[in-house]
């Protein structure tokens, strides 16, 4: 094969996934109900925590310094924005398995896993900017002006990468439907580990050092508290280290999803036509 024909083949390959991204974007736009529900929840949870931090007052956040109510509200706005923007691919995969759609989807000339991620990126492209506006609006309403507005731009960039990485982890959870049928209990555990080890509600530095050490061995800090902690004077993880960690955990997530998918397709049985 010549260099130019290989390049054409690659371009065609990428265009295929570009089409999946457009489909994901269009699907998310056609179903605004989910976006409204997420936006409403985001506003409510920021309102609740704004009231909570007002009651608590300024709190020491360990290694990241002391944070006032506004900073804590902005921290939560960023973690919630990343979490809610991440496409929940596990539910799509679970539905594919339950309905049996997976049998004809894997026969397509496109990777089942990559096409789901591409559709997820499309949905992220629609929802993330709108949810960011809501998160920033609610953050400003409940927490005032952010202490370090410039760092917000950095959080947004890394946050998008973290949300994509999160969606690959969700894929792995979704693939467990081949064995478990209902993946909700596994997702609950993942979600609650995100609460604690990811520092969703409280920065990780609030927790005892043992919890911090355990958390650092998992992908959760890189996915949430790492990027969001840039709202504080001293972020939990430096930018370069955070990007390295994100790339590392993204690769691990891809390997885990691929291995699970291979095993799953080996046990797949197609009944009927």
């Amino acid at each position: 094969m010549t260099t130019s024909s290989a390049a054409t083949a690659n371009a065609r390959h990428l265009a295929k996934y570009g089409a999946f991204i457009r489909v994901g974007f269009a699907e998310a736009r056609a179903e605004p109900g989910e976006l409204y529900a997420r936006a409403a929840f985001l506003v409510v949870i920021l309102g609740v925590f704004s009231a909570l931090w007002r009651a608590v007052g300024a709190v020491g956040t360990g290694g990241t310094g002391t944070a006032d109510r506004g900073t804590m509200v902005w921290y939560l706005a960023m973690t919630e924005w990343m979490l809610m923007s991440a496409p929940q691919l596990h539910f799509d995969i679970e539905a594919d398995v339950r309905r049996g759609d997976v049998a004809h989807q894997i026969a397509r000339p496109a990777s089942y896993l990559a096409s789901h991620v591409a559709r997820g990126i499309g949905a992220l492209g629609f929802r993330a900017p709108l949810l960011l506006v809501v998160a920033c609006g609610a953050g400003a309403a409940f927490g005032g002006r952010p202490a370090h507005p410039v760092t917000l731009a950095g959080i947004v960039g890394i946050g998008i990468a973290a949300a994509i990485s999160m969606s690959v982890w969700y894929e792995s959870i979704g693939l467990l439907a081949f064995w478990l049928g209902d993946i909700a209990p596994v997702y609950w555990i993942w979600q609650k580990l995100t609460f604690v080890l990811g520092g969703l509600l409280l920065p990780l530095t609030f927790y005892p050092s043992l919890v911090i050490h355990i958390a650092m061995l998992t992908p959760f800090p890189a996915l949430l508290t790492g990027p969001a902690s840039f709202v504080f004077v001293h972020p939990l993880i430096g930018a370069a280290e955070l990007i390295t960690l994100l790339v590392f955990w993204f690769c691990i997530a891809c390997v885990a999803a691929t291995l699970l998918f291979r095993r799953a397709t080996r046990i797949l049985q197609v009944n009927g036509g």
Binding site: V56, P185, K192, L193, F206, Y207
Partner: peptide, 24 residues
Amino acid sequence: LQAGLMALNNAIFFTFWIVLLHRV
């Protein structure tokens, strides 16, 4: 499994209050 995981789920969520109220 589902009942047990839900119980574990509640326990993990409650750590938020344990950690916060330990401080304030």
